[in-house]
Design a protein around this nucleic acid. Sequence first.
RNA 1: GGAUAGGUGGCAGAGAGGUGAUGCGUGGGACUGCAGAUCCCAUUUAUUAGGGUUCAAAUCCCUACCUAUCCUCCA
Length: 453
Amino acid sequence: MKLKDEISGKLVEIGTSSYPMKIYVCGPTVYDKPHLGHLRTYIAYDAMVKYLRHRGTPVFYLQNITDIDDKIINRALETGQGPLVLSREYTQNYIDAMKYAGVDSVNYYAMATNHIKDIIKQIKRLEMKGFTYNLPDGIYFRVWMLKNYGRLKRQSPEEQKTGTRAKVADLKEDQRDFVLWKFKKEGEPSWKSPWGEGRPGWHIEDTAISLSFFGRKIDLHGAGRDLLFPHNEAELSIMTALKNSENVCTLWSYTGMLRINGEKMSKSLNNFIPFDELKEKYSREEVRFTFLSSLYSSDLDFSWSMLEESRKNVSYIRRSYEKLKKQSGKGVSIDVGTYRELLYRNMDDDFNTRVAISILIELASEIMKANNVEENSALEAKKLFDDANTFLGIMPEQRETGIPDQSIESLVKLRDLLRKKKLYAESDSIRDSLNNAGIVMEDGENGTIWRRE
RNA sequence: GGAUAGGUGGCAGAGAGGUGAUGCGUGGGACUGCAGAUCCCAUUUAUUAGGGUUCAAAUCCCUACCUAUCCUCCA
């Protein structure tokens, strides 16, 4: 599989080693409800990791959660809660959102506050190498020692100077320097360290977590594009300083921003749609379909009509899948192998889920057009849908109704009999009551079909 | 202002030199006790504008305009 790398700007082959691939994705800062922008990014990486595993590449997928930060403290002051109580609550919200979205590929969620020791250890090592200096409010990272700072952002040092926000921190040796450890302020959560009580800066949280798990090498670092600078640039700097290597991480990957009315959906712009609002209206599969229907790397302008569109497509694919289950004997033969090949080819090409999905729709359409699908083709097509679903997650699961298939079948037959006798009131009442039990009956050319909703 | 990514039908969105995917919407038809779904046909002279390279450009190059993201808060 090839994936675009931000630094080289090129497609890089991944998943070639039989060793587990080490994937790290920047998690959220938990000071507010998770929103659709988060879902977009994490669904993308979830599908990517699942696809790699489906194709036989073992993956260790690690994600951090920033549960101590300025934003959390500020929010806690507003609400009157303890900062760590607040972050714990929103962490749970985040985990719930991931569960809702079917994001279950992450091997471990690392909370920053559980890794204070690793953070301190890492700052010590930077200190020993001369990469830090003290100011009254904290320990800072010395950026000028790395001549390639700005590599990720692809800006030269001259370009970096233009437009820098010239405010505060005038004491810093260089405007680009960033804080590693913040000294304690009254009323803030703090931890002991060799430099006095305090708390970690944002950037070092990620490197401390990723490197303490992964050691020397990270195969893939993912994040939303808004984290590229300064956050990931700082991470890259820390890694480079620690390992004396610019290639600690092989590939930097970014998801595009979710927009709403042409603007980025974000907590700071306060234009976000929280996941619980979505949850009420749309299913996991519809949401995944929506986000995987665009390229992970492009921006996507959100609208509710996108979800309506997805709802129809999810239902269409699902209907064709249900139809497959009931095929037997002779009929139309479908070249499923070609569909599978096209699907994999597009997934392998920078994770083109958009085209992958359109291929599934075409397959579904071919199934729908056929009067009867030949037995072998039906089995293969079903297998392809199942396989694709292991990473896309767009096929609704069958809900158990508690009513055995046989009973449903006989009720369907009874209803047919009543319909033939034009006893519509009676036949409709069978349909209604099964409908209430979550079973949908639809009359078609080849008799009545039913499915669990 | 700088960096980066873009501008494709009514809408959403792929494709990256050789008849412009896919979905939604809209209009018409078929099927039909009703409901739902499905099928067929049409919407199809859709690649921001202007130059250039080429036998051939949505795709490569130049210029202009427009949009988004980032430029030390953000998935």
